[in-house]
Design a protein around this nucleic acid. Structure first.
Lengths: 100, 100
DNA sequence: AGCTTATATAAGCTTCTGATTAGATATCTG
DNA sequence: CAGATATCTAATCAGAAGCTTATATAAGCT
């Protein structure tokens, strides 16, 4: 799965957002997102197979951790569009400047 | 539809990529992407309803144009992750520095 | 007006995706 | 070992999404 598709699902974005401040076990992710446990596991698996998170066993729990490198693909894809909206911001600024 | 979902579809990314260098009519977008005409129209409609492209009539054709502002949402969402992968790049650099 | 080109829409089909329920596996604790 | 806890997997189902074919609309041309 592409990172684009992985991140398109709101539940998965919620999981990722919950992982920004460090690794967490599945239970904590259920609590943070309100997803059912099986559903959490399913989405975590998708994220894991996409390479966006990794997981390490910790006794009876599994700690999930962000592996943000793959999100670089999103960032790279955005690059040409960034240039565009910068230029539209610029023209907005020019417009405002002209009016002031 | 969120920009995340809009951009998750490869066909729609292809359409957007084809629009980076300026507005184009539907026919040109079909040719550029290899999508069938009805399919192109369908995806363009989704992009239009999401606010990522706009369209203006030009005689019998319709010129589609990027409206990249909504993609800013993607960029903003990426922000915290950017910080993370920067720090992992930093630690990679430190690692390489130590070895040199 | 009649024909052609450009685009949009509708119907139908198939495939995919997400949620739930139930059950399996493994670890911990007493 | 028995029971409890944490997590994963499988089965099932409903709804969404994409593609194709066929048709409609509208603008241009002769």
């Amino acid at each position: 799965m592409t990172p684009f598709e992985a991140v398109a699902e709101p539940a998965r974005r919620a999981l990722l957002d919950a992982l920004v401040d460090g690794p967490k076990p599945v239970g904590a992710l259920c609590a943070a997102t309100g997803l059912s446990q099986p559903n959490t596991s399913r989405h975590l698996r998708i994220l894991r197979e996409t390479g966006i998170v990794s997981c390490t066993a910790d006794g009876q729990r599994r700690l999930y951790q962000l592996r943000p490198e793959r999100l670089l693909e999103l960032d790279r894809w955005l690059t040409p569009y960034r240039a565009l909206w910068r230029s539209s911001l610029d023209s907005l600024e020019r417009h405002l400047d002209e009016r002031s």
